[in-house]
């Protein structure tokens, strides 16, 4: 099967459970957003997928190959937050080595992309600024054709121009070569329009997995007098509430029910970010 499949994956660090029985299927050919707050378990999940860390329990497969097998490792490339490249290497040497390790790496394309980012390929990795180290890592990933490309907080420390350029290049390469992209981030608004499917993770558990389009359509806010709002919300999936004076705002997920003409209720769309914040807030209250 062309997919990443996790079954009941658990990972503990001492007394902290970073991943708590995560089961997840990421089908090939989509751009996924793995969204979660800091410490939600995003990085741990990607670490398990890229075989950098080991799960304490459960199984993980990439296209049917167990994670850790060389077949699985040839299918996935992970750009993490930490820098693992040899600090003394020049950027162009890193390109050279990527070409040696990956059949799908295009050195000429890498030089081209580096030019667009104004990344000096003759600099040593350790002499680059934090932002340019990120750019260097992103360049290495963008010039690589591989079925699964996984990014952990890719744009942290990048200026607006570089972020824009990264998203444009990523979409261009995705449109041209296909493949599967996973963007793990807490900067939800920024990636929202790129995503085809959204996976929300919190406290090491998957809160929900939905297509971005359906989430956008099904999340809404209803505002009005408290009693009216409560009456409307009865039996609906309410993810959060706010109060503004006498006005009550309820955040709902699901189909919108038509209200009779003259109803004091007002409806508005809820952004992915708002939905996410409300969902994780509630989780914190319950937990």
């Amino acid at each position: 099967m062309e997919a990443i499949e996790l079954k009941n994956v658990t990972k503990r660090y001492g007394g902290v459970t970073a991943l708590d029985g995560v089961s997840l299927t990421l089908e090939a050919g989509k751009i996924y957003g793995l969204l979660g707050r800091n410490g939600a378990g995003k990085s741990t999940l990607l670490g398990v997928l890229s075989n950098r860390i080991f799960a304490d329990g459960g199984t993980a497969f990439i296209n049917g190959n167990p994670v850790g097998s060389s077949a699985a490792q040839d299918l996935l490339f992970c750009v993490g937050e930490a820098n693992y490249y040899r600090p003394a290497c020049r950027v162009k040497d890193l390109f050279f080595w990527a070409g040696k390790f990956y059949a799908g790496f295009d050195e000429t394309l890498a030089e081209e992309i580096a030019g667009k980012f104004r990344l000096d390929v003759n600099r040593r990795f350790k002499s680059l600024s934090t932002g340019y180290r990120s750019i260097c890592k992103l360049t290495l990933a963008l010039a690589l054709r591989i079925p699964y490309l996984v990014f952990d907080e890719p744009v942290l420390g990048l200026d607006a121009n570089s972020r824009e350029l990264f998203y444009t290049l990523l979409l261009g390469s995705y449109a041209k070569n296909g493949g599967t992209v996973v963007l793990a981030t807490h900067l939800i608004e920024e990636v929202a329009s790129l995503l085809e499917e959204v996976v929300l993770i919190d406290h090491g558990k998957i809160l929900l997995q939905r297509s971005a389009e359906s989430l956008r359509e099904s999340g809404y806010c209803v505002a009005g007098p408290e009693q009216e709002v409560d009456r409307y919300c009865a039996g609906k999936h309410v993810v959060g509430e706010d109060r503004l004076g006498g006005l009550k705002l309820a955040y709902c997920l699901g189909g919108r029910e038509p209200v009779p003409a003259g109803s004091p209720l007002q409806f508005s769309q809820m952004s992915l970010q708002k939905l996410f914040v409300k969902l994780t807030e509630r989780e914190a209250e319950n937990g």
């Binding site: 444009t168 979409l171 261009g172 790129l194 085809e196």
Partner: peptide, 12 residues
Amino acid sequence: NELAALLGINPH
């Protein structure tokens, strides 16, 4: 693809 890259929107 042009539109997707220009608008920053998923090609699908």
